[in-house]
Design a protein around this nucleic acid. Structure first.
Lengths: 147, 147
DNA sequence: ACTTAAGTAAGAAATATTCCGGATAATCGT
DNA sequence: ACGATTATCCGGAATATTTCTTACTTAAGT
């Protein structure tokens, strides 16, 4: 899908966190889960479920699409990745450092924006419920679509 | 769907803006469009396309779901409403004043948060493209789902 | 080695959204 | 005001995405 953009050490650290969280929840650390997580964690392309499936199939040709969907959902529950809603479909982000997204409403491309510009928990949000993430999405037309 | 929460004068003003924008783009001001816009503009429930459809059908039983989808899309293009992505489906908001949303990842309910806490356009976002909106979404579990 | 969660396959279902061909009605020119 | 033009609507069908079902196989954790 794309070349590795996360440093080897960072990836190792994330994989360790993944295994630890699985164990704490009593979920088995299967090769499929590890591979699916690694794919999202080592990419900055905000892949869709379909893209993850295609990438994982390179190494594990017998993996099923259903497994990818189920695993992405469980990884999200374990707070190992976040879901980014685009005009077209769901995309996933394994980078949990706080940052914002620019989402093109035309081509659905997702761009990362560092650093974040938001204040996090505050009295008003606390009144609503327990905040897990703050998604800051700048929606508009990206440079590529403008030309 | 829900009782009118926007003042009569405000709604009249928004309807006038709606007609004016339609005319400027050469779009016909049909009863269906007016009713669909009015439904979203007079609600603070962030209705889904389906919810808008059900509400509009009370007054216009023959309206089709397709018309609702097409109309919501065109209203979005005209900057008359914004789209809020939830874990389950798209929801719409006729309130264009800058504000943030708390979205429950469990029940997909959308809560308004005033005032906004975000800085808007900045050098980083400008590098990506032309920003039309900034969606600030606080994702988490709402009070109701916690209990 | 045993137990059992998890994965596979193939199909079907559920859901959301969009497309199509023909009918209707809003706007425009006269 | 009237008919022509053409956007818009309608109902139903199609598509796309995601999830579920069943029965069987694999392999993780003890």
């Amino acid at each position: 899908m794309d070349k590795m953009v996360t440093s080897r050490e960072e990836l190792t650290r994330r994989l360790a966190a993944f295994e630890e969280k699985c164990r704490r929840r009593g979920l088995r650390v299967t090769n499929q889960r590890r591979e699916i997580f690694k794919t999202v964690a080592s990419s900055r392309q905000h892949p869709s479920a379909e893209a993850v499936f295609l990438a994982v199939r390179q190494k594990m040709p017998r993996v099923s699409l259903d497994t990818v969907y189920r695993t992405l959902a469980s990884l999200e529950k374990m707070d190992l990745l976040i879901r980014v809603g685009t005009p077209e479909k769901e995309r996933f982000d394994g980078d949990l450092r706080p940052h914002a997204h620019f989402i093109c409403t035309n081509c659905a491309e997702v761009y990362d924006i560092f650093p974040p510009e938001v204040s996090y928990e505050n009295p008003t949000t606390l009144a609503c419920g327990k905040v897990k993430y703050v998604h800051v999405q700048f929606k508009g037309i990206c440079k590529r679509c403008q030309s």
